[in-house]
Write a protein that binds this DNA or RNA. Structure first.
Length: 864
RNA sequence: GCGGGCGUGGUGGAAUUGGCAGACACGCUGGAUUUAGGUUCCAGUGGCGCAAGCCGUGGGGGUUCAAGUCCCUCCGCCCGCACCA
């Protein structure tokens, strides 16, 4: 009996439910995805990483998309001969675990580890080529203990500061937020309106690296422009000057009945337009500025105004586009060149966080200053005129903000803006009243959080010795397990014994720091820890310097600033502390789009899950009640809109390959995609169709058809390779569809050609549908090993080159015919053939041809 | 306001970077086989037109033998930052 599979009956189906787990075990048993901590010197390493998930309980479609994209890259690069590291872990600290503890009485650790177990099982069902041996969770003491070591190293390296500062306070989460975590004046997680509070906090000195973080963006040529721009804006470099204004003589103030007492001698401002200094008509300070406080101490009206500003603060200001308001303190400052005095106002549009929290107002050349001056009747003096300004030039109605020539400005008159800036800075420096500076928008990173479920900050507060680092032999500082969530606030703080320790320095009773780190700290170095996840030091240099940078990092655009900027900073800080020898953690970054779905609403206005809805030609209806359902917008999947689809249910019903294939085929991965039931069904059909194709590859004896099929096969190899290289997975899918169509259509081709085509199809599709690929490969080539361990296919150049090409023949740029010509046809031959085409003759209408164009292999254009 | 991106059939999207627009898929129409069927197969499917043909990549203009692709201009949508001095 020949060893050919029995012809499949029509309803024979690929049994993915049996096949998928089987191949997952095979990969596991063969150790296909394991790599050493230190790669051999001659290895071409490739590090693929997807942003690790927060263990919320279940995986969602965003995870499926993210990890499928990464898996395609990992499997493809492995086939291309790279030693691929592809690890997975858990970003496991964070507030939801504490909320679960408060709401359900489960301990955060128990809740978190149970979620991890569940999500790990779900990820394993997807057939991802992950090296699970490297797995860790950031809440493992083995991980966060190393993080505490890193922090102490940073402290020694002068990259950590404890300072009192105005912080963003989230009144719902009861914790501090970094600037990056405040979005439109609200907490990024709770959505609560953020308040300002003065607290003593730990800060990581990210600003020390601001110039480098900005400059190095230029070298990240495999990052999306958009992300680089967002980071550049966030870092916010601006060139200008700092200048000091002396407060007007005390006698002057006393005359006005103002007590001077402990007033500062001068006020410092930052400006990007020092050239407009002679157009100054007031000085404005932020409500939190010391001079404002000084005014408040002397004048209850000033205090009232400041209180009002704080109440309005971020919230109303954002909502109503903030009308400009101010309060004249009565103080005056002296202009460094004219000696005239100008009033000092407290103004609600001045930000304490930016520059010095004070500015000089030049209403003639700044929109905000103009608004303010107009409202309070302050002088508006033009000091820059357009080069072609007419007699009627005026800044009374609107400021002039472009380049021009200086006027009314003594030694600056006649200069253009750039020259005037240089000149005025020279003069200020000569008088020691100011200097040219670069100002940064970026603030230091406040990392203290008043939370239990986070990494404890490893320091001890002693009344005598001050802040004392926890000695290395006492690390890790482990979270206590017996905590009480029944009271509001930080459980670490009201734990009966945990915080009470002896001072490591003098031995007297002292207190542990009860704040924990912002969870963004945890995710700022996990990619480095993966290189040697069990090491007794944060990172082992041989491993981390060999594997880093991550060659391809993949995740959501929502981390464009926070996580990515912090990680870039951390890598530099680790370098400064001697742990690594590189600066940039992620050489390549890919930001995927979100997964969306239609939303549905029942008659009573409740949101409905997709599986509750049946779509028919005449509309959408509730499966059980039969009521009509309103189909809403296509939007990002969210629990509140119930427009989610559970990946587990999809894998149950269609298998992992179908889910992966659909998620890749729908559209380009950087765009938002719509999850559609029809699309999944289509992907499933294709999986089964390929399987059926493989069941009977018997062909005919037509060698010409065979050769054509072989050409298609090798062109597909080239095309899919190119598509995968360019992250055009949807195009790769389309090319594989074409090859499947070609095999199906070429039933007259010899069996060998059809087998070759299907083998190629299986191997080209293997990064995307790895299980079916193994299943078919094992029947097509029994005993030939795992596809996961095969090298990538190379196209045969002899088959890529065609003997003839089809040329488009245009007359005056309009398509009139196509001709088939030998690839090496000369211009003369091509033109002769083209001009003989009946349609071409007709279109020429007997007119002489003035010009003939032949682009080899593409087009002929005849100009009459 | 500033910065960035995008507009291609009923839908998602292709288009070797200036060279046959609409690959591939979804959907739809017709047919065949099967039918418990979200099965399978065949044909068709940008618009107008009986046809030859004409028109077509948000609108208008331009460069070019040739424009979805380059330039100018207008419109629309999306995203980011937002009183940043």
């Amino acid at each position: 009996m020949p060893d050919t599979p029995a012809p499949a009956s029509l309803d024979a189906r690929y049994d993915f439910r049996a096949a998928e787990p089987r191949w997952q075990q095979e990969w596991d048993a063969a150790g296909c995805f394991r790599v050493p901590d230190v790669p051999p010197a001659d290895a071409r390493k490739y590090y693929v990483l997807e942003m690790f998930p927060y263990p919320s309980g279940k995986i969602h479609m965003g995870h499926v998309r993210n990890y499928t994209l990464g898996d395609v890259v990992a499997r493809y690069k492995r086939a291309r001969g790279h030693l691929v590291m592809h690890p997975m872990g858990w970003d496991a600290f964070g507030l939801p675990a504490e909320n679960a503890a408060r709401e359900r009485g489960t301990h955060p650790a128990k809740w978190t580890y149970a979620n991890i177990a569940n999500m790990r099982a779900e990820l394993k069902r997807m057939g991802l080529s992950l090296e699970w041996e490297r797995e860790f969770a950031t809440c493992d003491p083995e991980y966060y203990g190393q993080q505490q070591k890193l922090f102490l190293d940073f402290l020694r390296a002068g990259l950590v500061e404890r300072k009192e500062s105005w912080v963003n306070w989230d009144p719902v989460d009861n914790t501090v937020l970094a600037n990056e975590q405040v979005i439109d004046g609200r907490g990024w997680r709770s959505g609560a309106v953020v308040e300002k509070k003065l607290l003593s906090q730990w800060f990581l000195s990210i600003t020390k690296f601001a110039p480098d973080l900005l400059e190095a963006l230029g070298g990240l040529d495999r990052w999306p422009e958009r992300v680089k721009l967002m980071q550049a804006n966030w870092i916010g470099r601006s060139e200008g000057a700092r200048l000091r204004f002396r407060l007007a003589p005390v006698s002057n103030h006393e005359k006005m009945g103002i007590q001077t007492g402990d007033l500062p001698a001068d006020v410092e401002v930052f400006t990007t337009r020092p050239d407009t200094l002679f157009g100054m008509s007031f000085l404005a300070v932020a409500a939190e500025h010391p001079l404002a406080a000084a005014a408040a101490a002397r004048n209850p009206d000033a205090a009232a105004f400041i209180a009002e500003c704080r109440a309005m603060g971020t919230s109303e200001a954002v909502i109503e586009q903030a009308e400009k308001r101010g309060f004249d303190t009565g103080f005056r400052v002296v202009h460094p060149f004219t000696g005239e005095t100008h009033p000092v106002w407290i103004a609600n549009f001045v930000l304490m966080e930016y520059g010095t929290g004070a500015l000089f107002g030049c209403p003639g050349h700044d929109q905000r200053d103009h608004d303010f001056a107009s409202k309070y009747g302050l002088p508006i003096i033009p000091v820059v005129k357009p080069k072609d300004a007419g007699e009627d030039f005026s800044v009374a109605k609107a400021p002039f903000t472009e380049d021009g020539l200086l006027v009314n400005s003594r030694f600056l008159d006649g200069l253009d803006v750039a020259a005037a800036k240089r000149r005025v800075i020279e003069e200020l420096e000569a008088k020691a009243q100011g200097q040219g500076v670069v100002n940064w928008r970026l603030r230091d990173w406040g990392v203290s959080r008043q939370r239990y479920w986070g990494c404890p900050i490893p320091v001890i507060h002693c009344d005598d010795c001050g802040v004392v680092p926890v000695p290395a032999d006492q690390l890790p500082v482990v979270l206590p397990e017996d905590v009480d969530f029944s009271r509001p606030g930080n459980p670490l703080d009201h734990h009966p014994s945990w915080k009470h320790v002896g001072c490591p320095s003098c031995g007297k009773p002292a207190r542990r720091e009860t704040d924990t780190f912002d969870t963004f700290v945890d995710s700022s170095w996990y990619f480095a820890r993966f290189c040697s996840p069990r090491a007794g030091v944060p990172v082992t240099p041989e491993a981390v310097n060999a594997w880093l940078p991550v060659d391809q990092y993949i995740g959501g655009i929502e981390h464009a600033i926070l996580h990515l900027l912090y990680s870039r900073f951390f890598t530099r800080a680790m370098r400064a502390a001697g742990h690594v020898t590189l600066d940039e953690p992620f050489a390549g970054l890919f930001t995927q789009g979100m997964v969306q779905h239609e939303s549905y609403k029942g008659a009573d206005g409740r949101w409905l899950y997709p599986e509750e809805v049946e779509k028919r030609a005449d509309g959408a209806f509730h499966r059980e009640t039969g009521e009509a359902v309103t189909v809403g917008r296509i939007e990002s999947m969210s629990k509140s809109k119930r427009n989610t689809v559970d990946p587990g249910a999809i894998i149950d019903r269609f298998g992992a390959d179908t889910a992966r294939w659909f998620i890749l085929s729908d559209n380009p991965p950087e765009r938002d995609m719509e999850w559609s039931e029809a699309g999944v069904a289509g992907a499933s059909r294709f999986i089964h169709r390929v399987w059926r194709l493989a069941q009977n590859l018997d062909g005919g004896a037509d060698e010409a058809v065979g050769r054509k099929l072989r050409q298609t096969t090798h062109r597909t190899i080239a095309a899919v390779t190119e598509a995968l290289e360019g992250f055009a997975f949807n195009v790769a899918v389309a090319r594989i569809h074409e090859l499947a169509n070609a095999v199906a259509d070429a039933s007259a081709a010899p069996r060998a050609a059809r087998e070759e085509a299907l083998e190629a199809l299986v191997r080209l599709a293997s990064p995307m549908m790895p299980h079916l690929a193994e299943e078919l490969w094992s029947t097509l080539r029994p005993g030939a090993g795992l596809v996961a361990q095969l090298p990538w296919l190379e196209p045969d150049p002899a088959l890529l080159a065609a003997d003839t090409v089809t040329l488009a023949v245009q007359v005056l740029g309009k398509l009139r015919a196509t001709i088939e010509v030998p690839v090496d046809a000369t211009d003369e031959q091509v033109f002769a053939l083209a001009e003989a085409e009946p349609n071409v003759i007709r279109a020429l209408e007997g007119k002489p041809i003035r010009k003939r164009i032949h682009v080899k292999g593409r087009v002929v254009n005849l100009v009459a």
